[in-house]
């Protein structure tokens, strides 16, 4: 089959815009070039995109290159621990160099601050354009942004520049965090901060 190349070695993922349909084979879709299939999978929910890995070996690794990671909890993942394991397992496997969307939505307590830090760092290392964290308040103490990330001396892998939309709900941010983001995200068009327990004042010019 056309896509054997992506089964065992992720590094062999290649785009091939000139791939030709092999007529006589009913399976037209599997013969589409990788980049088209990845576009297609990016339109599905993350759960559905991951499910396609079981279709055939052609599809095994395609979902790992989607440019949208929307961790909407499905029924079976309502529990915090399970959801956190799911996110961690996905970001360990995901390969896309650029992320258009990274969305986390779950009631999450501060117990998982280290995981949240890892996710935010992952998103910025993948040049995220839209980052949404909605950790719907579940305790008196919210998660916060990783302070070590919000300094001028962060590793070169972290890239704030492409960020266009940042939505933080039930995530504690300080005035310094906001100032840092405003001065380091030149393309930022939309900033939503909701239910932050630490942000008392904001002065922007």
């Amino acid at each position: 089959m056309a896509g054997k190349q992506v089964k065992s070695d992720d590094d062999k993922f290649q785009t091939n815009k000139s791939a030709k349909i092999i007529y006589g084979d009913n399976d037209r879709i599997s013969h589409l070039p990788d980049d088209i299939l990845v576009d297609l999978l990016s339109l599905l929910s993350l759960k559905e995109a991951v499910c396609t890995s079981v279709l055939s070996s052609r599809w095994h690794n395609l979902w790992k290159h989607t440019y949208s990671l929307n961790f909407d909890p499905h029924d079976s993942l309502q529990k915090e621990e399970k959801y956190v394991k799911w996110v961690n397992s996905v970001i360990r496997k995901h390969k896309a160099a650029i992320l258009k969307d990274f969305v986390i939505r779950l009631r999450l307590s501060r117990t998982f601050q280290k995981d949240v830090n890892r996710w935010i760092e992952f998103a910025f290392a993948r040049h995220v354009q839209r980052l949404e964290l909605d950790l719907s308040k579940s305790s008196l103490v919210n998660c916060s942004l990783p302070q070590e990330l919000l300094t001028q001396n962060t590793s070169s892998e972290i890239d704030f520049k492409p960020l266009k939309v940042l939505c933080l709900k039930s995530v504690d941010v300080t005035e310094e965090d906001i100032k840092f983001l405003l001065s380091n995200c030149p393309l930022l068009e939309e900033l939503v901060v909701d239910r932050s327990l630490k942000l008392l004042n904001i002065e922007a010019c």
């Binding site: 399976d27 037209r28 879709i29 279709l55 070996s57 599809w59």
Partner: peptide, 12 residues
């Protein structure tokens, strides 16, 4: 359903 509809052969 997707396998049948798209004619995807399961080669696993």
């Amino acid at each position: 359903w997707v396998r049948r509809k798209f004619g995807i052969e399961n080669d696993y």
